[in-house]
């Protein structure tokens, strides 16, 4: 489980974070530390607040109350643009822009040379020859990997992945899962949001379970994981 109060201060620490949007409470007094190594799964049924938790990390959303620390600094005090380059984000549906894969990658780092682009592609498991392909012509899995390559070009300290395989077929899903594992092994912590408990179990070193805007305690999380389902455990 990932939310011990005595965890190290590197990475993200949520302190009593609530997020209310249009009078609906999305996150309710969440305190958690996201481990700054390996792959951390944030699992839960849809509507549990998982994506919001992720989006709060790079300030695509802001907390209504509480604070979020990155390496001990309150992210509200950081320049949002600098913060976002430190924190890579991969979305549920691969978002590619019109043009070639190279043009897509250059949006993240306009001055990157071909060697840097090829290196990022390689880390995302794509041949450099993909750089000249039209981004619109890629398969779902290739597009998502090119999104990972694009995110890696800002040299992030941590990679946030928001249900990155839910729009992909089984093969592509496995590729992206392996990719997350490889990146974590290379030293980039990955925070992976999923509603799929099997995926969480299979993929990750740490699992945080969310229900209705709150983080459930270790015991309940263990029951959900054992039952492989978000139905209320019998215990």
């Amino acid at each position: 489980m990932g939310h011990h109060a005595d965890a190290p201060s590197a990475g993200f620490r949520f302190e009593h974070v609530s997020c209310v949007v249009d009078a609906t409470t999305i996150l309710d007094d969440v305190s958690v530390v996201l481990a700054h190594e390996g792959v951390t799964a944030v699992a839960g049924p849809s509507g549990a607040g998982k994506s919001t938790l992720l989006r709060l990390c790079n300030r695509l959303e802001v907390a209504t109350s509480g604070r979020i620390l990155l390496d001990g600094d309150d992210i509200a005090d950081l320049d949002p643009l600098t913060l976002r380059r430190r924190v890579g984000m991969v979305f549920q549906r691969p978002v590619v822009f019109a043009g070639t894969v190279r043009e897509n990658l250059l949006i993240a780092h306009p001055r990157a040379d071909d060697a840097a682009l090829a290196a990022a592609m390689g880390r995302a498991g794509l041949e450099a020859s993909f750089l000249d392909r039209r981004a619109d012509d890629l398969s779902g899995g290739e597009a998502q990997r090119s999104c990972v390559a694009r995110a890696l070009l800002t040299d992030p300290e941590v990679l946030l992945m928001d249900e990155p395989t839910s729009a992909l077929d089984v093969d592509a899903r496995q590729t992206i899962e392996h990719l997350a594992r490889d990146l974590a092994d290379q030293g980039i912590p990955v925070v992976w949001v999923t509603h799929d408990l099997d995926q969480a179990e299979r993929l990750t070193d740490h699992t945080i379970v969310m229900m209705a805007g709150r983080i459930v305690d270790d015991e309940a999380a263990a029951s959900y994981l054992a039952a492989r389902s978000f139905e209320e455990p019998d215990t």
Binding site: F91, V95, A151, T154
Partner: peptide, 13 residues
């Protein structure tokens, strides 16, 4: 929105 947020997430203003 998805494209705009993807650009924002890359640190663009």
């Amino acid at each position: 929105r998805a494209e705009v947020e993807a650009r924002l997430a890359l640190g663009h203003s």
